[in-house]
Design a protein around this nucleic acid. Structure first.
Length: 587
RNA sequence: GCCGACGUAGCUCAGCCGGUAGAGCAGCCGCCUCGUAAGCGGCAGGUCGUGGGUUCGAGUCCCACCGUCGGCUCCA
């Protein structure tokens, strides 16, 4: 993202944060003479500024920078706009030895207009503004962290030092924000995944390869059963294909050419055969397609698989279960005629929406991901095919009447796509579900079907992950539910707590009764106090605790305690019926 | 991969200016039989991420590497 491109906004909070970025730059240039400053926009919750510094700066330096910022606030330095002729502005930034600003000046300002600059104390910046009138208005801010960021967002360029901060109108808002950050940390799937024994990461499996513990495996199995059932009901055919293939398969698909840096190094056998862990499932599903002559009557052919993909993500890109090196994608490839394309895309979007609605996912955005016009070498296929593919996707979005944003440079190498964007507990955005239109692979593999007139035609392919990757989606769900999964997904749905050992026989009866209905139930028969057992079940986010003592055994009831702490006493049969109904309704 | 921060028991964390490691929880053993948010006692558990270096002496200081977290790049 080019900072200078940030939309000019009249939002007072954006103006405040943009001004806070200047305040930061003013403090940094005062403290470290010789600093070259590149750019600093407001962002969600705060701001940053990128610097090329004369010496390394780390987080230890932030307090001193913050103190200098506070000093400038106390001085009340005004934010003054200065309009200069282009040549004059160029001369100023040359004098100041600010090459990054000269770059922007040449990029963004034409020769014949006045250039807008801002002065804050001794700090002079190329900037359209608007800004607050005076530094005195910036009262509630905090520097958060230091990071590296490539000039112009290109890793081939020099890496600058980016300092992030947050800024608010009032001290209270700042405190609320910091508190919210701490709360978000408690929902972190990496933390909850360990506490709730859902998954483990152990470098001995190679980085970014998830160990699914029994609880996580249960959640995943429930989801997978549901997903497969729903897809079978919608005319998908599930297959199972190998996680490896000869490298030639990926040469033909174009992966080896355009996707190599994300692939594991090939394995070579003693015969010289090159085997590759699959980074995607599409070539494998093409092999399924090619096992027989396909007729137009077979189309649309929907080949599905929850297939594990292996991708060589850079080590710094790994992130818990959200970004891993092997993941199981709820994948499918739909082979269809161009005439069927629209309906198929709509069907996929509706399926993805159904999945999310059932799971209670309400906050997501649609992104139409297209090519980056400045990096066209990353893609395969003709402009015309891309235009057709994009038109098909837009047509489906419009038919469904949904709003969407444009993701420039977010397309797959073989085609454009619609991505369903969600946010984690820390508000970071990523893709779960996706629908992609592809004219390339059918071409590369020479796919055909026999049309009604006997001619051979080329099908179109739709790649889709209607649910997304199991790892990422479950990481997302852990954070969405803060670990308290709906009952149908809860690893343990009921814990039975006898009050004393004398109640054990009845507790066993209750447990067996539920287990007979395939309820995931545990009997807590440890020699502990019931208060502790209740507390531990609460910590494990178990949906129901059934306390059974002499009264319950006598009456054939159970004392039911839910996660909200609500207690009722019900006949065992009644509780069982309502529990099964809840599970059946996927709640 | 790059920038920054951080790695002490299974987990969460103490450990001062260098003087050869400590707590709570979890685990194991025993006692307590108890009505809805944590009963009591005991035991065991650590090559202080790894490898070098400085020092009479390193968990503490220095260097390299590995890993984790945040950001960049990339991405399901």
């Amino acid at each position: 993202m080019a900072e200078y491109d940030t939309e000019v906004s009249d939002d007072p909070l954006f103006i405040l944060r943009h001004s806070a970025a200047h305040l930061l730059a003013a403090a940094v240039t005062e403290l470290y003479p010789g600093t070259r400053y590149a750019g600093g926009p407001p962002v969600e919750n705060g701001f940053y500024y990128d610097f090329d510094l004369p010496r390394p700066v780390g987080e230890d330096d932030l307090p001193a920078i913050e103190a200098r910022m506070a000093e400038i606030v106390r001085r009340g330095d005004p934010f003054e706009q200065v309009l200069l002729p282009h040549a004059e502005a160029r001369r100023r930034f040359q004098e100041l030895d600010q090459p990054y600003k000269l770059y922007w000046l040449e990029q963004k300002a034409s020769d014949d207009e006045l250039v807008s600059c801002y002065r804050t104390g001794s700090f002079f910046d190329l900037c359209r503004g608007p800004h607050v009138a005076s530094a005195a208005e910036i009262r509630a801010f905090k520097l958060m962290r230091v990071a590296g960021a490539y000039w112009l967002g290109d890793e081939r360029n020099r890496q600058l030092t980016r300092i992030y901060g947050t800024a608010w109108f009032t001290r209270e808002e700042l405190d609320d924000y910091l508190h919210a950050l701490a709360e978000a940390e408690k929902r972190d799937h990496k933390r909850l995944g360990r506490e709730l024994k859902i998954f483990a990461l152990d470098e001995r499996t190679g980085l970014g390869n998830v160990i699914w513990l029994p609880n996580g495996a249960t959640i995943r199995r429930e989801l997978e059963r549901w997903i497969v059932d729903e897809e079978l009901a919608r005319g998908y055919q599930h297959v199972v294909t190998p996680a490896v293939a000869r490298l030639d398969l990926y040469r033909q698909s174009g992966h080896w050419e355009r996707y190599r840096e994300s692939m594991y190094p090939p394995m070579r056998t003693e015969r010289g055969e090159e085997l590759e862990l699959r980074p995607m499932n599409c070539p494998h599903h093409i092999l399924v397609y090619q096992q027989e002559i396909r007729s137009y009557r077979d189309l649309p052919l929907r080949i599905a698989e929850i297939g594990t993909n292996y991708r060589w993500e850079k080590s710094g890109e790994l992130m818990g279960m959200i970004r891993v090196r092997s993941f199981a994608l709820n994948d499918a490839h739909i082979f269809c005629t161009p005439e069927q394309l629209h309906e198929e895309i709509v069907g996929v979007i509706e399926l993805a929406r159904y999945f999310m609605e059932t799971l209670g996912v309400t906050e997501y955005r649609y992104r139409l991901s297209v090519r980056d016009p400045e990096r066209m070498g990353k893609y395969v296929g003709s402009d015309e095919e891309w235009a057709n593919a994009e038109a098909a996707l837009v047509g489906a979005l419009e038919a469904l009447g949904v709003e969407y944003e444009l993701g420039r440079g977010e397309a797959a190498f073989y085609g454009p796509k619609i991505d369903f964007q969600v946010r984690d507990a820390q508000r970071r955005e990523f893709t779960n579900s996706t629908v992609q239109v592809d004219f390339q692979m059918p071409e590369r593999f020479g796919l055909e079907y026999v049309a009604g007139d006997g001619s051979r035609r080329r099908p179109v392919m739709v790649h889709r992950g209607a649910f997304g990757a199991m790892e990422r989606m479950i990481a997302y769900l852990i954070e969405l539910y803060a670990g308290a999964f709906p009952t149908w997904l809860s690893p343990v749905q009921v814990v039975v707590v006898p009050i004393t050992d004398a109640n054990l026989p009845y507790a066993h009866t209750v447990t067996e009764r539920l287990r007979g209905h395939r309820v995931r139930v545990e009997l807590d028969d440890r020699p502990e106090r019931m208060g502790r057992k209740v507390a531990e079940a609460r910590d494990r986010r178990v949906p129901y605790v059934l306390v059974v003592g002499a009264r319950e055994a006598e009456a054939g009831t159970v004392s039911v305690r839910d996660r909200a702490g609500e207690q009722t006493t019900e006949r065992l049969e009644d509780f069982c019926a309502r529990l099964l109904a809840e599970i059946a309704r996927r709640r």
